[in-house]
């Protein structure tokens, strides 16, 4: 449904996208996971025909994003990272505007937005600029959906949004996916990766990995240990001296220790800590999260 083939883009001497290739299948919920400045927005703007690539090609539902930009815009819904509705128009006026531009009406496609729009309908006469963050987000999504797009492109819809509203937003996306809409969504929150069918990890304009979240976690190539201790800071300083160490990072109150595959056991790490005078701890093998993999790949890319 979305085909990206060796897309290249730079701004001055900053490379935004370096020969990026990926394809998103019809009906898939695809996540683009990476921090600010990784290239997520550039890629989405190129797919939306709002930015020209310098090399490579991309198509949306078979339409070339450069040549067929008019068709591309008709079949896609786009929610940019920054709130971009009209703050001086009311909720209902904004929605009506977007419906009219695309030659449709609110009534015609109401079923698509019903679940989402109903939550803000009590405020339909309020100016969009006066809405809370969560309500703005719901209105923006409604406006992106009102022309019944085949593909939805959402640029960091959950950034700066609290944990509860984020969960609700992902539930909405799941329902849209069930209606057959292909969704490409970006996020800097690694814990949201598991909500996607497939994800791409992106950093400094390069895709580090493209897979299902489950396969990605399985692919973690090293050993990972969860270390619990009262003195997190001291223990992590000791562990930085452990032979065959790859990294040690805090994940809440737990330390994630990554060591070269097959070198250590819980016992050998325990002995090392005891030698350092650290006695109050527990160590157990643990499963990697997407954030562990991202950190590993980031360090790997830095060295190369």
């Amino acid at each position: 449904m979305i085909e990206v083939n060796e897309i290249h883009k730079h701004y001055g001497d900053v490379i935004a996208l370096e020969k990026v290739s990926l394809s998103v299948n019809k009906g898939e919920l695809f996540g683009l996971i990476g921090p600010d400045g990784a290239g997520k927005t550039s890629l989405m703007r190129i797919l939306m025909s709002l930015l020209l690539p310098e090399g490579g090609a991309a198509s949306m539902s078979g339409y070339d994003v450069v040549k067929d930009y008019k068709q591309v815009r008709l079949i896609t819904g786009y929610m940019p990272g920054r709130f971009s509705l009209y703050p001086d128009l009311t909720v209902e006026e904004n929605l009506k505007f977007f419906a009219t531009v695309f030659g449709t009406t609110i009534q015609q496609n109401y079923h698509l937005i019903k679940d989402i729009y109903q939550q803000i309908e009590p405020f339909k006469d309020r100016r969009a600029g006066k809405l809370s963050g969560g309500m703005k987000q719901k209105l923006a999504l409604s406006c992106a959906l009102i022309h019944k797009p085949e593909i939805l492109i959402l640029d960091e819809p959950t950034t700066g949004v609290d944990a509860v509203s984020r969960k609700e937003f992902w539930e909405m996306l799941k329902r849209l996916k069930e209606m057959g809409i292909t969704i490409l969504v970006s996020t800097p929150y690694m814990d949201e990766a598991s909500k996607c069918d497939r994800i791409a990890l992106i950093q400094k304009g390069q895709l580090m990995s493209v897979e299902t979240p489950q396969a990605m976690i399985k692919s973690f190539p090293e050993d990972l240990w969860a270390v619990r201790t009262r003195k997190i800071y001291d223990t992590s300083k000791y562990l930085e001296l452990l032979p065959a160490l790859i990294s040690v990072n805090s994940f809440g109150q737990v330390l994630h220790l990554v060591t070269k595959k097959g070198v250590h056991t819980s016992k050998s790490i325990g002995q090392f800590l005891s030698q350092k005078g650290e006695l109050d701890y527990s160590i157990e093998p643990s499963t990697a999260t997407i954030e562990d993999l991202f950190i590993l790949l980031m360090n790997h890319h830095k060295q190369n």
Binding site: D36, G160, P188
Partner: peptide, 20 residues
Amino acid sequence: DEPTGGVDPITRRQFWNLIY
């Protein structure tokens, strides 16, 4: 006020070291 929004996972942890 939300100092680490959108920051990569390694920098996020470095930021917390500065806090400590």
